[in-house]
Design a binder for these strands. Structure first.
Length: 334
DNA sequence: GTGTGTCAAGCAGAG
DNA sequence: CTCTGCTTGACACAC
């Protein structure tokens, strides 16, 4: 079991989401942004390893316009060594990583053009895992897509497109149950049609379900992951923000709820992504709880490794560092 | 420097 | 029809 958080570390002084406007696209800006993003990804992963957080969702913007026609630069070749080093670090430290392509990736769209661009985006993100040398347990997490007033047709279109995906992408795609359109039951039918693993989101399941109790839902979702091809099942964990709109994620981990949730696992192994607004802060608290429950090894007892490396003053993100001072103390978070 | 409208891209539902 | 939310803010220009 690993614990992780998505994309952003609020305590760190770098961003892996450096970008720029399409209107100001240039090869120079692309090179600078990708270099800064990869350097930050490396530092984020090192910070996570030092803390014992071994699961991480990488941001989709490592290569700005990575699937856009404007980007004809051979970034795969230019940054091959950097991607490879990150991949080596991931493998050496038993890290798990994923991408969550954004809402514009809709494999079941009736528009052939939207499907084509969606596949190109998946190819872009999957190719980053390929460059890292990661196997098919590194996943691309997407939703089923739109309903288009015909649930059956929407599901069958997804299955058709999924079966035609390039092999390098097909083996990485996993489908998450969502909170408004496609609940677990529909996702399980997609799995039956295509073999696609189902990434379970407990909060979405609470919002939209067919009455499956949580332990049963977890068991069903876990059963869609092939042990060697797909690895340990991934899941997203979050909870309702008190007194807020239904579906809004909590600002920070509610420990009693998380402890209760763990009771539902009944020994199932999951890598858990905490979709909580305060990011790594809640992930660290969740990790402490798992250590209490002996679901993960105890923290190493030796002297704590440095939490961050020195910032790279040449990186564009350095200006963000000055706006957002480092706030982590070695004692305060473990 | 600070404030703020806008940014490649889809879809559904609320108001 | 317009606005919001979704895995996540950052850019770019006005002042």
């Amino acid at each position: 079991m690993r614990i992780g958080y998505p994309c952003v570390n609020e305590a760190m002084d770098c961003s892996a989401a450096n970008t720029f406007r399409l209107a100001s696209y240039s090869e120079e800006r692309l090179l600078a942004a990708v270099a800064a993003n990869l350097a930050c990804v490396r530092r984020l992963l090192e910070w996570n390893v030092a803390q014992g957080l071994l699961f991480f969702r990488l941001g989709s913007g490592i290569v700005p316009f990575g699937s856009h026609a404007v980007n004809t630069f051979a970034w795969q070749q230019h940054f091959a060594a950097d991607f490879r080093q990150i991949g080596d670090y991931i493998k050496a430290n038993n890290l798990r990583v994923s991408f969550h392509p954004d809402q514009f990736v809709v494999l079941n769209s009736p528009s052939a053009d939207i499907v084509r661009r969606s596949i190109e985006e998946l190819v872009y993100q999957g190719s980053m895992f390929d460059l890292m040398g990661l196997d098919s347990t590194a996943k691309l997490q997407i939703h089923v897509g739109g309903l288009y007033n015909d649930r059956e047709l929407a599901l069958s279109r997804f299955a058709t497109v999924f079966d035609m995906l390039p092999a390098a992408v097909n083996r990485r795609v996993v489908v998450e149950n969502d909170d408004r359109l496609f609940p677990l039951r529909d996702c399980l039918r997609l799995h039956a049609l295509t073999g696609v693993p189902i990434l379970f989101d407990n909060f979405h399941h609470e919002c939209l379900n067919h009455g499956e109790p949580m332990p049963e839902a977890l068991r069903l979702a876990a059963g869609t992951w092939h042990p060697t091809r797909d690895g340990v099942p991934m899941m997203d964990y979050s909870s309702q923000a008190p007194d807020e709109r239904k579906g809004k994620h909590a600002a920070s981990l509610v420990e009693t709820q998380f402890r209760q949730f763990l009771e539902n696992l009944h020994g199932l192994d999951f890598d858990i992504m905490l979709e909580i607004k305060d990011k790594e802060a809640s992930a660290l608290r969740a990790l402490d709880i798992l250590r209490e429950h002996r679901l993960v090894p105890a923290a190493p007892s030796g002297p704590a490794p440095p939490l961050t490396l020195p910032p790279d003053p040449s990186a564009p993100a350095a200006k963000a560092a000055r706006r957002r001072p480092q706030t982590v103390s070695p004692a305060g978070n473990v």
